[in-house]
Amino acid sequence: MSRLTNKSPQCRRTAHLACLALLLAGSVAAAAEYRFTPEPTYTPEAAEEIYRPLLDYLSKATGETFILVAPANYSSYWREIRQPDNTDFSYDEAHFADYRIQRANFIPLVRRLQPTSYTLQASPYFEGNTESPKGLENAKIATMPAPSLGYALLAEIFPDPVQQPEIKSNSASWRDAMDILNSGEADAMIFPTWMLETFGNPSNITVFTSSEFAGPAVLASPSVPEDVRNKVRDALLNVEGAPELAELLLELGVTRFVPASAEDYKGNQSMLSGFYGYK
């Protein structure tokens, strides 16, 4: 008889328990969760619905588990960015991306192919001068709250607090800002330029369009293992082959993702220098 069959029942039980423990340990390792945090351009409830297909896609493509961390607003998001251990992956516009890269050693994985710019538009019913931003100094301008990129650009356009327009920064989304303008609650708005093609009102008057920034980036915390970062990057570079993401990509203005580098965003964090907490 073999030595294995000569083992006592107690020995066989011990060996069985040891194997079971190894299997359980492997299952725990495979079930590690990674947090994905996008900018709060939607309410947390809307973000859960909008980003769910992406998280499911990443989980399936990488074999990892991804959960959404949806910030309540830009104020809390800015606070959490300054405490980088709060997330593993983020989806950020250029100023936040550069801040994470330079201050917390986040690693850029991919960026939206299309660059970002913002357009300042006025209602056709606004009675002031719409030939330049200066003509909107007495206007009410809708935008997302500080320090969103739209708000940061308004701060650059109107640097003098004495001559600033009334900034209505209570929008829950960029489409909400559009609705505020179209309803007459505001005289103007600043809006991502790419969205105007789909959701814009052709009657509005374009006053100013900003320079272009590299498109929003997906970044990884330096604590994320390199093999996981690589799997996420590769999955995102191939989203065109995922029909389940078609609606999400349209919502985000993404035709495809391309590799991102720190150089793409270098210097953009300076737009945050006027906001509380920047050091």
Score class of each variant (00 low, 15 high):
residue 23 L to T: 04
residue 23 L to F: 08
residue 24 L to W: 13
residue 24 L to F: 14
residue 25 A to R: 01
residue 25 A to I: 01
residue 27 S to V: 00
residue 27 S to A: 12
residue 32 A to V: 09
residue 33 E to M: 04
residue 36 F to W: 10
residue 37 T to K: 11
residue 40 P to V: 06
residue 41 T to D: 04
residue 41 T to G: 01
residue 45 E to S: 05
residue 51 Y to Q: 02
residue 55 L to T: 03
residue 55 L to E: 02
residue 56 D to G: 00
residue 59 S to L: 01
residue 59 S to E: 01
residue 60 K to L: 12
residue 60 K to S: 13
residue 61 A to N: 02
residue 62 T to S: 01
residue 64 E to M: 04
residue 66 F to K: 06
residue 66 F to T: 10
residue 66 F to A: 07
residue 70 A to P: 15
residue 70 A to T: 06
residue 73 N to D: 15
residue 75 S to I: 01
residue 77 Y to C: 08
residue 79 R to S: 14
residue 80 E to T: 03
residue 80 E to M: 14
residue 83 Q to S: 15
residue 83 Q to E: 13
residue 84 P to T: 14
residue 84 P to D: 09
residue 87 T to I: 02
residue 89 F to G: 05
residue 89 F to N: 05
residue 90 S to N: 09
residue 90 S to C: 08
residue 92 D to V: 11
residue 92 D to N: 15
residue 93 E to W: 08
residue 93 E to S: 12
residue 94 A to Y: 13
residue 94 A to V: 04
residue 94 A to H: 07
residue 96 F to W: 12
residue 97 A to R: 10
residue 98 D to A: 07
residue 100 R to S: 06
residue 101 I to L: 12
residue 103 R to P: 01
residue 103 R to F: 05
residue 103 R to E: 10
residue 106 F to E: 09
residue 109 L to C: 10
residue 112 R to Q: 14
residue 113 L to K: 15
residue 117 S to V: 06
residue 120 L to F: 03
residue 120 L to S: 03
residue 124 P to N: 08
residue 125 Y to K: 08
residue 126 F to T: 08
residue 126 F to E: 04
residue 128 G to A: 13
residue 130 T to D: 04
residue 131 E to V: 00
residue 131 E to R: 14
residue 133 P to K: 05
